[in-house]
Design a protein around this nucleic acid. Structure first.
Lengths: 329, 329
DNA sequence: CTCCCTGTCTATAACGTTATAGGCGAACCC
DNA sequence: GGGTTCGCCTATAACGTTATAGACAGGGAG
């Protein structure tokens, strides 16, 4: 039951001063090679690991990356994978992963403010960025390191990873047009979020190019409740029976909307075709007739982890940014 | 750009000593009510929040609860909800949530050992407990506070929350028998895990009582790959066409197995019935013909959060334990 | 021989907190 | 009036780390 080794332990064993041990482990230039060697050897043998509290108190570095995300509803599926991927990206680094979720009804700024004010992380990772996102504005204003899944107008100024939803929108409409579909119903993401606008822009552009008509479903969004999506799609189809294509922004929305089509007796592949984006390998398992475009969340998480670390350790460097193209099935 | 307030700041403003301020905020008995009042007032005004590194260094308390879970595969769905629920349970407490996932191929003991050795959390929460689970043994041996989702043989000695899978197994078979089903195929969880054994025991018991025959699918488990489950179920049905009931341990297994039945042209409700356990409200949305038994993960997470905190702060108290009954649809 | 440099190492202080021992005046008792 | 007790407060040290300034020996230059 020996206590945990500290610098003092190594100092005692080596006959050196605590400060020397510290500097030797830091590879400081004014420590002889022999000393460094000896210190490192002892440190290894007794399994020395720096005490986080000591380091943090002295340096202010927490060695913590905080993920601040909403963890509810369907969205949780993708968020969970993203967090898992970030965790994977943090493996082998000295960073710990902290989760500060916010819940519906909570102010998304609260956890952010807390972290910034108490300096309780070296960097923050957020997702679901909106145009003019206050979290982005706040952290930029305070010079607090962060990385974002998604872009706002000020995307130039911070690290981000984003899926190219505009390319997805274009690709999806082209795929449907390629199957001869002329009138496409789109269950779009909430347009308050940046990625929703991007996707819509892409779909519109490709619709113009291919001579396809794009009908954006009103009163529902792809993050809505299944029942709402399904019943609204049924209504829309009743009033617009020429619709022969479906463009969905999420796997759940796709399932729900397809259900709406099927309620009219329409069959996928025969009476209509569907393209959907899937980040969680969901549709491939249950509705393989749907044309799937995959969003690679693992890549996103791994990138965001590295981007956050770079933002924390090297604020001078240009921010890491990556626009990920859609992967066709 | 004023620096963060510390005890020293309050000491300066109040004219008291730092130690007095500290004790006043701790409500120590030998500080006058007037002083306490004054100190608290100032602390509130300047927004004093204790520095975690300082507290941790001095007291050893990290104010961190670490969740150590595997974050991969289908299981991720439920794990994600569990983590989210734990986070919800931690809201309003002074505890931060740390995530230390392990990945397939990783040794599950590694993160546990790290946390215990470096004392980097006040308590740990684990899930998917197995009989003789080495994580449980290790933490019990080291007297490290933890709470578990699931029980092992030594369940008496530690805090846990568990879903009553035995009751679920019984209930499921009874429901099928109640619909006149006589020969039930069960897609069971991996029997290496405690909950799998429980569920199987319950199913067997109810089968005996109701005169139902229970056929446990071999070579597949409910956490397996969709395709494997589906094709194995097809094989089994080909060799055993009298099967008219399905008991699934997870929503994904249910979907996959139902797919196998349907591949034989069998229809749910007419040719067979299905009972499945669902923790993520999945089946209700997509296959409502299935009889669903709900496992309440939110309750589990909230309970585990409180149980972990109690284990950390009050090791003398008897461990919090709760066996949650299945909720019928 | 003195002076200065260079290469190593060390003493000290500080980050913010809290446990411990002690100080000091006022009130109380005999 | 002298001693004790009580109520309230403070000084000090310590947790583990690292930045800073400085110490000390040996070597080279003058």
């Amino acid at each position: 039951m020996s206590a945990r080794p500290t610098l003092k332990t190594i100092a005692g064993l080596s006959g050196l001063a605590v400060a020397t041990v510290s500097r030797a482990l830091k590879d400081a230039p004014d420590i002889s090679a022999a000393t460094k060697q000896k210190v490192r050897q002892i440190a290894l043998e007794i399994g020395y690991v720096p005490d986080r509290a000591g380091v943090r108190l002295r340096t202010g570095k927490t060695n913590v990356i905080s993920v601040v995300m909403s963890t509810e509803h369907e969205m949780m599926n993708m968020t969970a994978r993203l967090i898992s991927a970030i965790a994977a990206g943090l493996r082998g680094t000295r960073y710990h992963l902290n989760m500060t979720p916010f819940f519906s009804g909570d102010d998304p700024m609260r956890p952010i403010r807390y972290i910034v004010e108490t300096a309780s992380a070296d960097a923050v990772i957020i997702n679901q960025v909106e145009p003019g996102d206050p979290r982005v504005e706040y952290m930029l204003a305070n010079g607090f390191p962060f990385a974002a899944h998604g872009r706002s107008e000020r995307a130039d100024e911070y690290p981000w990873f984003d899926f190219d939803n505009e390319a997805y929108g274009r690709l999806a409409v082209r795929k449907l047009a390629g199957r001869g579909r002329r009138r496409v119903l789109m269950v779009a993401p909430p347009l308050a979020q940046s990625y929703g606008r991007h996707m819509l822009d892409g779909a519109h552009a490709a619709a113009r190019q291919t001579g396809t008509t794009l009908v954006v479903a009103d009163r529902i969004t792809s993050d809505g409740r299944i029942d709402d999506i399904r019943s609204r799609v049924i209504e829309i189809l009743a009033g617009d029976p020429a619709i022969d294509g479906l463009l969905a922004a999420s796997p759940v929305a796709a399932m729900a909307a397809v259900g709406g089509f099927e309620a009219h007796g329409l069959r996928i592949g025969r009476d209509f075709d569907t393209v959907a984006k899937d980040a969680i390998d969901f549709l491939r398992l249950f509705r393989s007739e749907i044309m799937i475009v995959t969003e690679d969340v693992a890549r996103a998480g791994e990138f965001l982890a590295r981007a956050a670390i770079q933002a924390a350790t090297d604020p001078g460097r240009p921010p890491m940014q990556f626009l990920d193209g859609p992967a066709e099935d």
